[in-house]
């Protein structure tokens, strides 16, 4: 960013940035060590809407794509409708798996946020 000593090594640069960060944080009246442990504002906007958009399409697409694969394989192998049935079930499972994974991550983030806000207060 606006770093004047561009030529110095990465670690020295980081150090000077961290130093600046610390000074900024103290100037704002926050404790400096909550800066890196706590979640930044950017990911704090992990609002319900963003999560909802991420999750909702996941399930639909998984089922849709797997149904398409099933139909394709069925017409190719002449095994109507069995592969379609199998793939829809698999697609549902894969979709739920993806949704579960996102939900798990969001839950972990929320927990961490709670913990860090407890510590900060």
């Amino acid at each position: 960013m606006t770093d004047p000593n561009n030529g110095t090594s990465e670690s020295a640069r980081r150090k000077s940035l961290e130093d600046l960060d610390k000074r900024l944080k103290t100037a704002r009246g926050q404790s400096p060590d909550s800066a890196h442990g706590g979640k930044s504002r950017a990911s704090g906007s992990n609002s319900g809407v963003a999560v909802a958009w991420r999750i909702s399409i996941e399930l639909a697409v998984a089922i849709g794509v797997c149904a398409a694969i099933g139909i394709g394989l069925d017409t190719w192998l002449g095994t109507k409708p069995w592969l379609l049935v199998v793939f829809i079930v698999l697609g549902f499972a894969a979709g739920v798996r993806n949704v579960y994974r996102i939900a798990q991550k969001v839950a972990a983030e929320m927990e961490e946020e709670e913990k860090s806000s407890d510590r900060g207060a």
Binding site: W53, R54, I57, E58, V61, A62, V65, C66, L90, G91, A93, A94, G95, R97, N98
Partner: peptide
């Protein structure tokens, strides 16, 4: 393993469909 593989290959499609559909 089959489910995980499928869910992995679904990713580019769900990623693109989400943006495009919205």
């Amino acid at each position: 393993v089959v489910i995980e593989v499928i869910s992995y290959f679904i990713r580019p499609i769900s990623l693109s469909v989400r943006l495009f559909a919205n």
